[in-house]
Design a protein around this nucleic acid. Sequence first.
DNA 1: GATTCTGAAA
DNA 2: TTCCCTTCAGAATC
Length: 574
Amino acid sequence: MKDKPIIVQSDFTVLLETRHPKADEVRPKLSSFADLRKSPDGLHTYRITPLSLWNAASAGATAESIVETLTAYAKFGVPAAVVKDIRAYVNRYGLVRIEREGKQLMLRCDDPEVLKAISAYDSLRSYWEPSPMDHRHTIAVRLTERGSVKQELMRLGYPVVDVAGYQDGEPVPIALRPSLRASGKPFGLRDYQEEAVEAFYRGGAAAGGSGVLVLPCGAGKTVIGIGAMAKLGRATLILTTNSTSVKQWRQELLDKTTLTEDDIGEYGADRKEVRPITIATYQMLTHRKSKDGEFSHMKLFGERSWGLIVYDEVHLLPAPVFRATADIQATRRLGLTATLVREDGREEDVFSLVGPKRYEVPWKRLEAQGWIATVDCTEVRVPMSGETLEAYRKSGAREQHRIAGENPAKLDVARQLLDEHRGNPTLVIGQYLDQLGALSEELGCPVVTGETPNAERERLYAAFRKGEIGVLIVSKVANFAVDLPDAAVAIQVSGSFGSRQEEAQRLGRVLRPKEGNNEAHFYALVSEGTKELEFAMKRQMFLVEQGYRYRSVGWDERRADGLSATPEEGEQAG
DNA sequence: GATTCTGAAA
DNA sequence: TTCCCTTCAGAATC
């Protein structure tokens, strides 16, 4: 009994003892079908939800495999009610399907009772073909409502498996090059990249062709997208988050495939090319002249016979693009992301409109294989001076966040950490421009913010890359800048409200494999005794779920110990 | 015709 | 819930 690390409770929560020897073994299994909710010291709380089960099911898990995992690791067994509900939920995935019969779309369900219940919903009525329902197992769906039906049925608790197939789209020969065009180095997909492409193409439990692949920063999402494009060989629309990323996609396509400059178009501010491979930003699509005006560029979805639409960073897909996506369900869709978690809670819409999760590579797996660096994460608790503390206490909740974030005592901490890691390229990342300006002055290091002109940014990035600048201070540009050079050490001096993505993104800055022991360092500085601790825990949740541990140390203890850290302080986060 | 600035939107 | 960054179109300027 004592050698089991989890407790399964009847309310669908699972408690994981993080110090248990088998904790690291069960963690990736658990997070494939449950979401991490809280991660205080020593005991993490996971929750099994319908959506987490359906994503697991679509990636190939079965009710039995899930129950087996729980049973194998549960200290006090698995409540029978939980087993029963897991089976019921997992079996719901695929219970309702959309199929094609000739030119008609049919909603099929082998359980007549369920079909009857579905046909009784008013919210679905307008999606059915007006023909009378004379089938016991099917309802005819309007061709144009394929997406809306899936979206609404998802809300009602019926995740639809869509096997109605896709239009092929315009053929475009795309082949992967055996060696890179630019450098001549040999090129091929890594094992997990190959597996991801295959999982997308074939699907997990159900027919593939659409869905989401979940991969860590640095896993080569672009390469996987390119792999899928080569597999299909059809006109492709690539949607991504910013113009640097547009350029990067273009470069990668030219470097790694047989496509030529003329095959690839950019649909952006200065050029509006629609080519067999077209790359655009989400902001382009969501642009409108006035607040209530029409979207000027959504027509791009219909401008060519696309065989594939790639949604890069699908967790950032904006609401209006969901709407457009609902209308193009006959086109294959590939979502790429490092996390299914959306800060706006629309994970269900990603599932029903882009597609379910087809494949996930855990961060720790890439780490173990050496594709990304091992990162040592430390949360440093920095006390506030009496003066700052007083100001903090007197302020409203709004200013408190800022005062804690800008705690001047962080300067000394940053200075000492820089001393410790002298010789290693280091990024200092923060949220407030005033704070970053002050740090820049005190530490004598250059700073890059949104105001920094592009030419200057490139100059600084280049100097940092060459090692001419050892420390670079960056604002939220770090969240977007794809071309920001990699570092070995990152010091986060302040962060926003609790964005898990932001934390993951920033950690990503030090993930590139390192020479030598392949180790990188990530420090999060938080003000002792303030709300910042709580925010920091929220931010860390995603990475903790991926198996990262934040060692939490007080600044005074750390200083007393000289340069060595204090591991017995214990891991903590979430 | 190309570049730089501005406000609006998200 | 903030602050910050990015991007678009259109106007102004060279």
